[in-house]
Amino acid sequence: MITAERKPIEDLIQSVSPYRRILLVGCNECVTVCSAGGRKEVALLSSALQMHFMKEAKPFEIKEITLERQCDPEYIEELVPIIDQADAVLSMACGCGVQEIARRFKEKPVLPAVNTTFMGASERQGVWAERCAGCGDCVLGVTGGVCPIARCSKQLLNGPCGGSTRGKCEVDPDIDCAWQLIWDRLKALGMTERYEENIPAKDWRTGRGGGPRKIVREDLA
């Protein structure tokens, strides 16, 4: 999933301050799963903002809605009947959702309520970790199912570096050394000989190096 974290309340208070009527829009997809911007977080943020402006004795109205997905235009249409009741939209979706609302409602300010962080997986309740960098040319087949681009601090395709200590990364003892994980997997798979195949320099055109990317499925488009 795409993970996100709510921005500090202080920043959100500042960003909504110029407006009196806010439409707070959540998203039922990734940000719900990572507890950043689903229905529950929408309700909580709404409550917090209202209380703050009550205390400031400042007129402030907030309307809550959580869409099935903010990254698909058909769901954004649900905002049409209510968008005029708001001076600005505060979106709790990832950056994709924020941009879709901005694209649909050209004259409405749209503010991000979360910081979109990474593509990751849930390690355990309340903990998410980065797993994929979206490079557009997956190497997991040769690295034992552990991504060195997303999970090695130096994105070494031929690691580990000299800073790997007891399975941990030199950058932070909370980070697993990706190459230790890769090596452990290759051993478990009986594929240790694969380690010594040098992985060539990557063609980053499939990633961000090639500029903004687009996928077109001719049969569907």
Partner: peptide, 9 residues
């Protein structure tokens, strides 16, 4: 950090 290529590359 850049890390376009690694030291082996």
């Amino acid at each position: 950090s850049v890390h376009d290529i690694d030291s082996v590359q």
